[in-house]
Nucleic acid binder design. Structure first.
Length: 140
DNA sequence: GCCAACGTTGGC
DNA sequence: GCCAACGTTGGC
């Protein structure tokens, strides 16, 4: 069981869009970055991730779950690119902003804080628990 | 809207 | 295989 962070611009694909897909989930397509793809290849069914809104919001707004292993990205013919499917699990009672993360010593090594451009990031179990607590989210 | 950081591309 | 140029991302 591992933890991740999925980053999206709300204008392109928002938490509400994700929720609207329900349990069927949705491809996390459009990733054209090797590091991000490699992270998705490493994912297992049932892995959990944060859903992060970049740009205007810059906050973790909810929790998603991996429901399909990495498979070819349907938005391209280029065999290099793969993606997983994820579904919305629950929203954060309180969105955790980037600013909040930066001010937390416990999160100083979080990828989001240090390499905000990577669109699919690994999250450690400690970071996961910490951010959940900040967001008022009851982890299972 | 600006600009820094990063990743990718392509010429050599 | 190196590196300069370019495009994109995302924080500010």
């Amino acid at each position: 069981m591992q933890y991740w962070l999925f980053k999206s611009e709300p204008n392109t694909w928002s938490w509400d869009d994700q929720v609207a897909r329900g349990d069927a989930g949705e491809e996390w397509d459009g990733v054209r970055n090797y590091q991000a793809r490699n992270n998705m290849r490493a994912m297992q069914i049932g892995d959990l991730g944060f859903f992060y809104h970049s740009m205007s919001e810059k906050a973790v707004v909810g929790v998603v779950e991996v429901v399909a292993l990495a498979h070819p990205d349907s938005t391209t013919d280029d065999a290099r690119w793969e993606c997983v499917d994820i579904k919305a699990v629950a929203p954060f009672p309180t969105p955790v902003t980037l600013e909040m993360c930066k001010s937390e010593p416990a999160l100083e090594n979080m990828v989001l804080v240090n390499n905000s451009r990577l669109s699919v990031q690994p999250v450690t179990a400690e970071e996961w628990a910490h951010v959940c607590r900040m967001g008022g989210y009851q982890d299972r």
